[in-house]
């Protein structure tokens, strides 16, 4: 564990908590893509199957459980409890366009052709693009509430910090995993446009509004 990895995990945790609190406090999930949230639930379910096979550390188990439970809780709040506030007219990205290619790619490019390893790889590929429905929703409506922007910033920072963690581990521990690194790069790049808007607008107190 190094500082980048820890900050990455904490940033991820913060993103999840911010999103759940936003939905809970405002009793609304307007502006949030349910498609992205379903994809994240699929991502963490397929990645953390090792919870039942291997024990790594209390930290590892605790965080995995939080990520899985929070993903399902978010989906529950969006599709059941606060269904009436869900922006489904704008949330039109087709999930199969991301799930199917990720699955095919995981079957083709993986470290080992075993069920757990392919599912892990699939989750890494899918995670890298799972935010697309959310970014698509923001671009369709042309704006995002500040709290949604904070959520996206924390979520985007998480994989960016993991990239630094991988650079560190490469030099310090001679450890690297190309699948995770390439997917992590893709994931972070997808946020670049958003990061730019966040820094130039939201941090200056303005609403995140896309140019018309």
């Amino acid at each position: 564990m190094n500082i980048f990895r820890l900050l990455g995990d904490l940033s991820h945790l913060l993103a999840i908590i911010v999103l759940l609190l936003k939905i809970w406090k405002t009793r609304s999930c307007a502006g949030i893509s349910g498609k992205s949230q379903i994809l994240f639930a699929i991502v963490y379910t397929s990645r953390y199957l090792d919870l039942v096979t291997t024990y790594i550390s209390a930290y590892n188990t605790f965080m995995k459980l939080i990520f899985v439970v929070a993903a399902y809780a978010t989906v529950y709040l969006m599709y059941i409890k606060f269904k009436a506030t869900y922006d489904h007219n704008h949330d039109t990205f087709r999930m199969e366009f991301l799930v199917i290619p990720s699955l095919i790619l995981a079957l083709l490019i993986n470290h080992e052709l075993t069920v757990l390893e392919v599912l892990w790889t699939f989750s890494i590929y899918l995670e890298s693009v799972a935010i697309l429905p959310q970014l698509f929703l923001v671009s369709k409506t042309g704006e995002a509430e500040s709290i949604t922007s904070h959520y996206l910033f924390a979520l985007g920072s998480y994989r960016g910090l993991y990239l630094l963690n991988w650079v560190y581990r490469y030099y310090a521990e001679d450890h690297y995993d190309l699948i995770a690194i390439v997917a992590g790069l893709v994931q972070t790049v997808l946020y670049c446009d958003f990061f730019y808007l966040y820094i130039t607008k939201v941090l200056k107190g303005k609403k995140l509004q896309l140019p018309a």
Partner: peptide, 10 residues
């Protein structure tokens, strides 16, 4: 190398 069963990263 880490395998699916001993990946410590989240």
């Amino acid at each position: 190398r880490e395998t699916a069963n001993n990946k410590d990263e989240l």
